[in-house]
Design a protein around this nucleic acid. Sequence first.
DNA 1: GCCTTGCCTTGATCAAGATCAATTCTGGGC
DNA 2: GCCCAGAATTGATCTTGATCAAGGCAAGGC
Lengths: 240, 240
Amino acid sequence: MDFSRRDIHSTEIPVLCRSCEVRHKGMCGALNPDELTLLSRHTRQLQHSSGEELVGESTDVEAYDNVMRGVVKLSKTLEDGRQQIVGLQFAPDLVGRLYATESPMTAEAASDVEVCRVPKVMLERLIERNPALRKRLMDQALRELDEAREWMVTLGRKTASEKVASLLMLIAVHLDPDARGDRRIFDLPMSRLDIADYLGLTIETVSRQFSRLKKDGIISITANRHIEVQSLAKLQSRCG
Amino acid sequence: MDFSRRDIHSTEIPVLCRSCEVRHKGMCGALNPDELTLLSRHTRQLQHSSGEELVGESTDVEAYDNVMRGVVKLSKTLEDGRQQIVGLQFAPDLVGRLYATESPMTAEAASDVEVCRVPKVMLERLIERNPALRKRLMDQALRELDEAREWMVTLGRKTASEKVASLLMLIAVHLDPDARGDRRIFDLPMSRLDIADYLGLTIETVSRQFSRLKKDGIISITANRHIEVQSLAKLQSRCG
DNA sequence: GCCTTGCCTTGATCAAGATCAATTCTGGGC
DNA sequence: GCCCAGAATTGATCTTGATCAAGGCAAGGC
């Protein structure tokens, strides 16, 4: 698995949401600060497990959401309730299916989240006359495709213990990218249920695998969510 | 799962590969016949399980392959040999990672395949000045992303029997799209091993599930590959 | 025709992970 | 500090699908 840091400008730059007059610490992703300032129309704070949806099937608004802070989960549900998380979006990703008014998917806050809402037509009009933006959006789509396919290997061919190790690696890379050496410290941005739904496991199995990683001295956990990875190399070696 | 026929012009149109002077029955996909005639430089016939790779990591050629006939499998392999097929490409898909000279993936013929090879730089130059082509390629990327995420649900949350039913539905839709009524007849474009690698199962489990579908009168199989679906509705009801 | 080879099927057994059922931990309200 | 509700852990048991092993079947070579 390729856990290298994605190519974004991680220095935070102020972004002013014109309509709400909220000043964010934004990051350069698909939309740069200027474009975001130009387009953003509404800023929302969403709380973890509020049940509120972002751009998604049921909230079929004509908009995209640019993630400013926190983690958004994209999930799909079978008729009998079985759920699978099919993607995580970190700042500064743009959430929402380009060129489609609905998508058979739900976007919800996995952690506490702040998003800037961008009207669909405005963005799509801007895409037409801005080749750089177009390229960045194409790159986000292709990167998400690569990530989805990489995760298919995890879902289809890895053991429970490899799955959990892979998730910890993924999050360590996204949430503590500047750490030095072999240790990483971060807070899990999601519940055990979310983790299970992302890995195609049950919460009990996830919990047992965490306990095993603790027992083996690879991680320590406090307050359920706070993770200290003692050795990233050892964790990597468990990713299959 | 959405098994609706993808939006392509399925009428076949002649395409002339200029360099090889081969005339194909092409279909309109990401590249239309004019663009393909303009760009194609070499036509290759690949045989099922020849081991030959299309555009991929090891054959790091500066080209894309446009599938004219047959089915191409995209797969990833873990160090210990566990394999996962992460996508199937049917005619007239374009195979190859846009804007990247290598991708951690292998593309091989799943069935007997005919492809038109297109030089990377030529296509990327054409993209710059052809908005319609650009949009079609963006749409293929977004569609592949949707399909990958849909398959993640299959891999992570469905039972073996639902997985096999889902694969049969997928192939029925692609390879016998014009069939009327509730019956479908087609040849499986891949081996049991490929099926297992696409579904995250073993060949034995796949075989048992086929046997069960036969016993329940939902499908009949002759010569290993030839499938007759007696009731698409019943098959659908087993997809989870 | 017979043998070989590769692919598929079937059966017996095993183990990883699911399920069911208690506890225990954590955080929030008072 | 104490209580409560939701979340996480742990244990006991069961099920699904993997593994190991044997045999069937069809195509190609001689």
